[in-house]
């Protein structure tokens, strides 16, 4: 055993014991490692059978994927899109009015985020272990938030489209519910980690629950709440871009039509508009978040 070389200075008996213990520990670690790998491989194989994985088909058809991506960069006339940007982005000035739909997408995300922020804000104080007044109510609020964020927004949107009719309204409500759940969970964790001294101080003066929350907890949590909401806004813009797939407003409808009808250059134009928008929003919210965290530091 290689270890024996390093423990030569010890008496033979002790060195022997050391080497054996070390060997046993390593062997145990290796056994559990092998077991984990076997379980993983079994899971992968089961999933492969259930998920109808066909590696042969993938390998033989893989060029088609790059073919598709390549075709996104050619206009109907067969020219490269870059040769005629005006033709490429024709929808910006003409009928489908992509920019208008893009604005609609952003507004859906904004309204959904803001309503979700208000919902998550209110519920987080009820659900937080340290602020909530009754453990029953806290547990109930936590379950409610869990359901809100576990059901995918597109499922909510599908149901709401039937209830509210086609258009952005079901998209806004679906996003608002999901955001309430997602932000509510994060907010609850923030509230549970606050310094309780200000809260106790206010309670000692006989302040009501609302006053305690307003003056004891809110000043401590506001900047992280804002930071999380800005992050969520960016995610919601992405989500809002596919709401149109089920008829819930935004640019998704146009995107789906152009993919289904093989208008390749339109697909790439809409995707580029979306990617640029998301990157700009990402950049903007990051700036604001940095300023928020910077204003936190001096205190």
């Amino acid at each position: 055993m290689s270890l024996a070389r390093f423990v030569q200075s010890l008496p033979a008996q002790q060195a022997d014991l050391l080497v054996r213990t070390y060997g046993a520990a390593i062997a145990a670690k290796r056994r559990s490692m092998i077991l984990a790998v076997v379980v993983l491989v079994l899971c992968l194989m089961t999933a492969g059978v259930v998920g109808e994985v066909r590696p042969g088909k993938l390998i033989s058809d893989f060029p088609k994927f790059f073919d598709y991506i390549g075709r996104l960069f050619y206009l109907d006339s067969g020219k490269l899109v870059f040769s005629d940007p005006y033709e490429w982005f024709w929808g910006v000035t003409q009928k489908p009015k992509w920019l208008k739909l893009l604005l609609e997408t952003i507004l859906i995300a904004y309204l959904g985020t803001l309503i979700g922020f208000v919902g998550g804000f209110a519920l987080s104080f009820v659900a937080a272990r340290n602020m909530g007044r009754s453990p029953w109510l806290a547990a109930l609020a936590k379950r409610f938030l869990e359901i809100c964020r576990t059901v995918p927004e597109l499922v909510f949107a599908l149901i709401f489209v039937v209830a509210f009719g086609l258009g952005p309204l079901p998209g806004v409500i679906a996003l608002a519910i999901h955001t309430t759940g997602a932000l509510g969970k994060l907010f609850t964790e923030v509230v549970e980690n606050i310094d309780m001294k200000p809260v106790e101080g206010l309670q000692a003066t006989g302040a009501s629950w609302v006053q305690t929350a307003r003056f004891g907890a809110v000043p401590q949590v506001l900047s992280s709440f804002a930071s999380y909401s800005l992050l969520r806004f960016e995610i919601n813009v992405r989500e809002a871009s596919i709401m149109g797939f089920v008829g819930a407003g935004g640019i998704g409808d146009e995107l789906l039509i152009s993919i289904r009808k093989f208008y390749y250059s339109d697909v790439s134009a809409i995707l580029i508009l979306l990617i640029v928008t998301v990157m700009l929003i990402d950049f903007g919210t990051e700036q604001v978040r940095h300023r928020l965290t910077a204003s936190e530091q001096p205190r």
Binding site: E52, K57, K64, R238, I275
Partner: peptide, 29 residues
């Protein structure tokens, strides 16, 4: 990486359906 990430899973699904056909394999990809 940002570009790949920003294109939604559903859009990727539509693209992969063109490559490997309808079914769960397109979803996995």
């Amino acid at each position: 990486l940002d570009t790949v990430r920003t294109v939604d899973t559903l859009v990727w699904a539509l693209i992969w359906i063109n490559v490997v056909g309808l079914g769960p394999f397109a979803g996995i990809l």
